[in-house]
Computed example of a mutant assay.
Amino acid sequence: MSTTLQWFKSTYSSSEGGQCLEVATSTHAIHIRDSKNPAATGPTLQLTPAAWAAFTADCAAR
């Protein structure tokens, strides 16, 4: 069974710069990609939910 990821950008992103990340969640991973390269074959970074939580907590603390 194949599952299509539902990608989204932050509501803080604008349509001007194109320097955004898109994120999709699945059961065991957080998927991240460059919004300028949304093709299904483009590179993605996959993190565990725990690693994503640590990353976003660190970003919020800055």
Rank of each mutant, 00 (worst) to 15 (best):
M1A: 04
M1Q: 12
M1C: 08
S2A: 12
S2V: 13
S2L: 14
T3L: 11
T4H: 15
T4G: 08
L5K: 15
L5W: 15
Q6E: 07
Q6Y: 12
Q6L: 06
Q6M: 11
Q6C: 06
W7M: 02
W7E: 00
F8I: 05
F8P: 01
F8T: 03
K9Y: 07
K9A: 02
K9E: 06
K9T: 05
S10L: 09
T11F: 11
T11Q: 03
Y12W: 10
Y12L: 03
S13E: 02
S14Y: 10
S14K: 13
S14A: 13
S15K: 12
S15W: 13
S15V: 08
S15E: 08
E16S: 05
E16Y: 07
E16L: 13
E16M: 07
E16A: 03
E16N: 13
G17P: 06
G18C: 10
Q19E: 15
C20L: 10
C20R: 08
C20T: 03
C20Y: 04
C20M: 10
L21G: 02
E22V: 04
E22C: 02
E22T: 08
E22A: 01
V23N: 06
V23T: 13
T25E: 15
T25N: 12
T25D: 15
S26G: 09
S26E: 02
S26F: 11
T27F: 11
H28P: 06
H28Y: 14
H28E: 14
H28W: 15
A29T: 05
I30W: 10
H31M: 04
H31T: 01
H31I: 00
I32G: 00
I32N: 01
I32M: 02
I32R: 01
R33Y: 01
R33K: 10
D34N: 14
S35I: 14
S35Q: 03
S35M: 06
S35N: 03
K36Y: 01
N37D: 08
N37L: 09
P38M: 04
P38H: 07
P38L: 02
P38V: 02
A39T: 04
A39G: 01
A39H: 05
A39L: 03
A40M: 14
T41I: 00
T41L: 00
T41V: 00
G42I: 02
G42E: 07
G42D: 04
G42S: 05
P43F: 12
P43N: 04
P43L: 02
P43I: 02
T44W: 13
T44L: 04
T44Y: 09
T44G: 00
L45I: 05
L45Q: 02
L45A: 01
Q46T: 03
L47W: 12
L47K: 11
L47E: 07
L47V: 05
L47I: 05
L47G: 01
T48Q: 10
T48R: 11
T48F: 11
T48A: 08
T48E: 14
P49H: 10
P49M: 07
A50I: 04
A51G: 07
A51H: 15
A51L: 09
A51N: 10
W52Y: 11
W52I: 03
W52M: 12
W52E: 05
A53F: 12
A53Q: 15
F55E: 01
F55A: 00
T56M: 11
T56K: 08
A57E: 09
A57V: 13
D58V: 05
A60M: 09
A61I: 10
A61N: 15
A61K: 08
